[in-house]
Simulated assay, not measured.
Amino acid sequence: MLQRILRPTLLAAAGRRVLSPLWPAVAAPFSTSTAVPDLAPAPATTTSTATTTATPPPPSASPPSSKAETLRLLPLLRAQPQHYITIHIHSFPFLVTLGDTITLPFRLKNIIPGQTLRLTHASILGSRDYTLKGSPWIDEKLFSCRAAVVEETREPMRVKKKTKRRQRKIKTVKSKHPYTVLRIKELEVLGGEEEA
């Protein structure tokens, strides 16, 4: 950040070579000097070669170990008495546990009350001692979350009066949005043996 504020000539005087987007590389037309500071990259030093010789581990090596670690710790999460889960329905996150009632701020289409829905998009699954986080989602083979549709309801009628300055007109806007109510009836951590 400091390099973007200082002029290139001041940085060149200090022995640093920096290309700054705030100052042009050409001299001003009223300037009598024709010397323009060299903006080429600095030659490589011994410290930069030491950092380039170290190669990072291949990206394919870390995911299997984390997956194996997840499968190893999954029985500990399953042994806990109560679980919670963050499910996502149309990009809305809901933190729920068994028996919770969710009032969705929209109406789900093509459903009827009493129908059971399987919720597959979850980002966090946990208990008091352990938490499993997905990136961005947890594999749906590791958990089972089902919700029953309780009802499709509407909010109470809202009436808003809209006015404009220096106008005598008052516009009345009524709204009564539909909601869907779900109840979590199953939340279970599965073994994940299907993947092993």
Rank of each mutant, 00 (worst) to 15 (best):
H121N: 11
P113S: 09
H88Y: 00
Q115Y: 03
D100Q: 13
D100I: 14
G114C: 02
P105Y: 06
S91N: 09
I87D: 07
T97Y: 02
V96N: 11
I89H: 02
R118D: 05
L98I: 08
L95V: 09
Q80R: 00
L104G: 04
T116C: 01
Y84A: 08
F92Q: 11
T86S: 11
S91Y: 08
N110H: 15
L76T: 07
L95M: 09
L108Q: 04
L119A: 04
K109H: 13
P113N: 03
Y84E: 08
P105S: 08
D100S: 14
P75Y: 13
Q115K: 04
T103R: 15
L119I: 07
R107C: 15
N110L: 13
L73W: 11
P81M: 08
L117E: 03
P105I: 06
T116E: 04
N110D: 10
R72D: 14
I111N: 04
Y84L: 10
T86C: 06
A79R: 12
L73N: 09
T97S: 15
L95W: 14
L95Q: 10
I112T: 07
T101S: 15
L77D: 04
L77E: 05
L117G: 02
H90W: 06
S91T: 05
I87W: 03
L71T: 05
Q82P: 01
Q82S: 03
L108N: 00
L98W: 14
I102C: 04
D100N: 14
H121E: 14
R118E: 06
F94L: 05
T86M: 09
L71M: 09
F106A: 00
D100C: 11
I111W: 15
L119N: 01
P93I: 06
T103K: 13
H121M: 14
V96F: 13
K109T: 06
I102M: 08
P113C: 07
A79G: 09
K109G: 03
Q80F: 00
F106M: 08
P81R: 08
F106Y: 06
F94E: 01
K109V: 07
H121L: 15
F92A: 07
F94I: 07
T86G: 07
T101M: 10
G114P: 01
L104I: 09
R78G: 06
G99C: 12
T86Q: 11
L117T: 05
L117F: 14
F106P: 13
F94Q: 00
L74H: 09
L119P: 00
L95C: 02
G114S: 00
T86H: 12
N110F: 15
L73M: 11
I102A: 07
H121S: 13
K109N: 08
Q82R: 02
L77T: 01
P105H: 02
I87M: 11
R72E: 14
Q80Y: 00
P81T: 01
P93N: 02
L117C: 05
L76A: 09
Q82N: 09
I89V: 12
R118N: 02
N110S: 11
H83E: 03
H90A: 13
L76R: 14
T116M: 01
I111K: 08
G114N: 01
K109S: 08
L119K: 05
L71C: 02
I85G: 13
F92N: 10
T120L: 06
L71K: 09
Q80N: 00
H90K: 10
N110M: 13
I85P: 15
F106Q: 07
H83F: 00
N110V: 04
